[in-house]
Amino acid sequence: MLTRGCVTLSLPDQFPAVDVFWQGDLIGPSSGRLRAVVASEYREISQADLLQELARQPDLAAWILQQQQQRIDVLRDRILWLRRPVEHRLVRTLMALDLQAKDRMPEASGIIPLTQRELAGLAGATRENTSTSLNRWSTQGLVELQRRRLRILSHKRLIEVINQSPQPAPTGAAGAAA
């Protein structure tokens, strides 16, 4: 369990970032690599300790299931968004991370502490496409780029990127596979 900070989960040599964890999130056993994007603290809880606590507090199981369900919902949503243009996915990723950062790490004052490579991974985009879009939005004053982090300057104008570009028509399996 992450008790303070923020970490990303990546699959080395495959995906730069597939998930983000914030203070209070449960991180299950995984085969990935965690990177602390800010100074972080965590508790390594053994299965025996967890089972003992579940026997003492059975309603804890409902909370753990709820946490896992929320994570599944987020991942399912990201899969559905893969049909959308890259820039839509980037905007959506930035807006979601901005909300999470403000809610879970308010001391960061709206900073999204992820690298462009990690953002690309979360948005399902290439590093090059991500960099091109972010640099353009930076020039336009929509975002402020810093080393290994960024900040949204205009949420309204960033959302307009989605609203002003053409929406893809609903597609079936053939479209999704294209």
């Binding site: 008790t3 970490v7 602390a36 972080s40 300790d49």
Partner: peptide, 30 residues
């Protein structure tokens, strides 16, 4: 509420900004 209930379990560990933790639970500095 549940976060508070289990945050005392197990061993507390820290990871510096930029530090990595691999599946084998060995923390390394960036």
């Amino acid at each position: 509420m549940h976060f508070e209930a289990i945050r005392h379990l197990g061993l507390a560990k820290s990871l510096p900004a930029g530090g990595y933790l691999d599946a084998d639970a060995t923390a390394t500095a960036a």
